[in-house]
């Protein structure tokens, strides 16, 4: 129902979004995963008709939004990365204002406000000024405001940035429920792969303006089907040993931490023999060895050679 076609945005000399083609089907929950500066927010601004693309197109139900953004705006609920609310108004007053912008009034307006407040679990504190809310509560109102006009598609730009685990879980659970129980189509942007992994059926991975991989979670992880991640923990830090292990032939990537080491190796490679041999030589004691199934983080690592938080 929603498609972008070679969407591109150039700011002076940065190519923020580079030929991005995405698709959202009805009822789907799609993740847009990428590190800081990948171009996620810029892409979303263009999809939501707030920013004019340098080239490319955005279509809703087959119609381009460039000439007439109205259709898209009616269908879309946008949760921006920033808290887009009046701090000096209460949650209730904010929702009332945004509801009235969409032509709601009277009983219908009150009902809708009641519904979205219930949804984000803030009914009993709706009279407080937004500026007195915690970060997590502000994020929840930010979502509620995007829900006032019963959108078909919810687009969220890092809705969980900087909030406590409790609010985060509440928010993720709310989104999952909207998607599963109410058939809401969701585009979820984040650089937390756990969130995307938990929420989304399909994922686009963006880096430096480009989509570098797309598919269902399983499809993406299949990229790594020929390799595995071995996580080795030691009794203390052995920088020399870690360096040696990283340089063993066949190791594709090494992630060194304080007392542990993460190695990406081809499936079937016989690592353990040389591991224990080297450990013994350095007088090191291995406390734990763990072979992990790949995560989206690993996929990103494999594709870019960097971690998401780099």
């Amino acid at each position: 129902m929603l498609k972008t076609d070679k969407l591109t945005k150039k700011f002076k000399d940065t190519l923020a979004v580079d030929n991005v083609s995405l698709e959202l089907r009805k009822g789907e929950s799609v993740g847009l995963l990428g590190p800081n500066g990948a171009g996620k927010s810029t892409a979303i601004a263009m999809i939501s008709t707030l920013l004019k693309p340098s080239s490319g197109d955005v279509r809703i139900h087959g119609k381009s939004v460039l000439k007439d953004p109205g259709d898209m705006r009616r269908v879309l609920g946008v949760v921006p990365q920033k808290i887009a609310l009046y701090e000096e108004l209460s949650a209730y007053e904010n929702l009332k204002f945004f509801g009235r912008l969409y032509g709601l009034s009277g009983k219908k307006l009150e009902q809708r406000i009641g519904y979205v407040l219930d949804l984000v679990g803030l009914s009993d504190r709706k009279k407080e000024l937004v500026k007195h809310y915690s970060g997590g509560m502000q994020r929840r109102v930010n979502l509620a405001a995007a829900m006032m006009h019963e959108p078909e598609v919810l687009i969220m730009d890092e809705p969980t940035v900087g909030i406590d685990p409790q609010s985060r879980n509440h928010l993720l659970e709310t989104i999952r429920r909207l998607n599963h129980e109410e058939g809401m189509t969701v585009l979820y942007t984040s650089h937390y792969m756990e969130e995307v992994e938990k929420l989304c059926d399909r994922v686009y991975i963006m880096d430096r303006g480009k989509v570098i991989a797309e598919g269902t979670k399983e499809e993406l992880k299949a990229i790594l089907s020929d390799q595995e991640t071995v996580w080795i923990e030691f009794d203390q830090s052995y920088p020399e040993l870690f360096k040696k292990l990283s340089e063993i032939e066949g190791v594709q990537h090494a992630d060194v931490e304080e007392r542990s080491l993460k190695l990406m190796i081809p499936k079937g490679m016989r690592l353990l023999a040389s591991l224990f041999h080297e450990a013994e030589r350095h007088g090191a004691q291995v406390t734990n060895v763990h072979v992990q199934t790949p995560t989206l983080e690993d996929v990103f690592l494999r594709l870019t050679g960097r971690t998401l938080r780099d």
Binding site: S48, T49, L50, P69, G70, R73, R74, L76, V78, P80, K82, I83, A84, L85, Y86, E87, F98, L101, Y102, A145, H149
Partner: peptide
């Protein structure tokens, strides 16, 4: 303030 806090964007999204 509306512009900086992005409420202006929300207002634009309402297509008024």
């Amino acid at each position: 303030l509306e512009q900086r806090q992005m409420v202006f964007e929300r207002i634009r999204l309402s297509n008024r």
